[in-house]
Write a protein that binds this DNA or RNA. Structure first.
Lengths: 238, 238
DNA sequence: ATCATCGATTTTGCGTTCATTTTGATTCGA
DNA sequence: TCGAATCAAAATGAACGCAAAATCGATGAT
């Protein structure tokens, strides 16, 4: 299992019950164990995590703020339905950030980032060859979250991870197209190449286009399409 | 008092206690009633809102996820310290979104958006002339949040509002420079002009530059500076 | 046969209580 | 006098319990 969000307490102290619950429930939802739109079963989760309803409900409020669950007054919490229009919004928002992340990461990434990314990228290829779609999805998220971390902006990193978890959720719910996976890996190669030589505009463009391609592939599986009429095109200094 | 965040339940139903608490406490923090870094007094807030600790604590967890408060294990919640480095990150993140918002709002804004914005802009000028800095700050947030809403992307709108509330918090804590206010109003004029004729690239650039200018002004008050070395420059289609 | 109505059961929201930890004052020793 | 140790008081985190609301099933009417 992997750390979906890198927003835990900075120090490596024992994570609080609250943090454990938030991470645990998030994982359940992102992995698709709780169906889209399903009611979140408080009692069952209480037993599963061996806690009372109070901390569990507190965790649900936090996840609601994160967009993973929706609170219905007097009707509890449901797994936020991930409808194509919303997913399209997620991709649009992510695209706006990808551009910044590319520009910033190219400038700010250090050797540790590069090394970690090379490792994740290698694992990603392995998972793709093994057709391990679950590992592929998680590693893919880790890859992009690591690039986001390299942009050295905690706000962006947190927002990006939150959006990424929605994409992750969609990925876990669809059938993966081998051709798209191959193309995606190729795009990752290009991203790594741009990052290695710190070509910031190139990296920004590649991340942005990769996001758009991913959006088209995933939304296509949902029978929708991603026509980003906002297309920011390429970015250059004047 | 104004609606800081437009994330409430879509229907105009009676807002739940939870929503009321989240909005109320957010307001208290944004307005600076609770000092930066101060411990959040649970008992006092319980009396103030006439609720028990359970729903209040749930609200605090949600606000923690929003970045307004920090949860210290076994030590309760404190108002998240708004240090210049973090504020700089907020402005950077906001700049990434401003660009998208400008491109999208120019395409998607409808007459209602335009009308509302003209009204807010007029009120803003009035507040500026009256040197009512509190109204000015709130109206300024409303102005930018409305533009964000015109981008027709709920995800972006919510994220933007969250970042904006941090800026709002900083604004309430500083002395306003009359010259900067005048310059800011002039920039707003330019933004409105670009929006009226739906000049998307122009609008994106103006919003981005306005954000940077605001960042410099506010961070300057904190004795820091905003050197956005990531500068995205102007954006054009290839 | 379908739909509305009523009542039992479940679920939700929130107040209350309890154990644990932290905080602050006080005492004791160097 | 200063600092460490000690203990009372407060606050935090989590469990529990209760009232209100919603859900589900059965019954009856059309």
């Amino acid at each position: 299992m992997m750390e979906q969000q890198a927003s835990g307490p900075a120090d490596g102290q024992v994570e609080s019950l609250h943090a454990r619950l938030v991470a645990g429930i998030r994982d359940i939802i992102v992995r698709g164990e709780l169906a889209d739109g399903a009611k979140v079963p408080e009692t069952a989760l209480c037993q599963r995590f061996a806690v009372s309803r109070t901390p569990l409900r507190e965790a649900l409020k936090a996840l609601a703020n994160e967009g993973l669950v929706t609170l219905l007054p007097n009707r509890g919490a449901v797994v936020a339905p991930l409808e194509p229009p919303v997913l399209a919004e997620v991709f649009e928002a992510k695209e706006a950030l990808e551009r910044f992340i590319g520009l910033a990461a190219a400038e700010r990434a250090d050797d540790a980032d590069l090394t970690a990314l090379e490792a994740i990228h290698a694992d990603l290829c392995t998972a793709a060859n093994a057709q391990d779609t679950v590992a592929y999805t998680d590693l893919n998220a880790a890859f992009h979250n690591r690039i986001a971390a390299a942009a050295r902006n905690g706000q962006v990193q947190q927002i990006y991870a939150s959006l990424q978890s929605q994409v992750c959720r969609a990925r876990h719910a669809i059938n993966h197209n081998p051709e798209r996976i191959a193309a995606s890996l190729a795009e990752h190669e290009g991203i790594m190449a741009a990052l290695r030589v710190r070509a910031r505009f190139d990296l920004a463009d590649r991340l942005s286009q990769h996001n758009a391609a991913t959006a088209r592939a995933i939304l296509g599986q949902f029978g929708a399409d991603y026509t980003n009429d906002i297309g920011q095109g390429t970015t250059r200094l004047p």
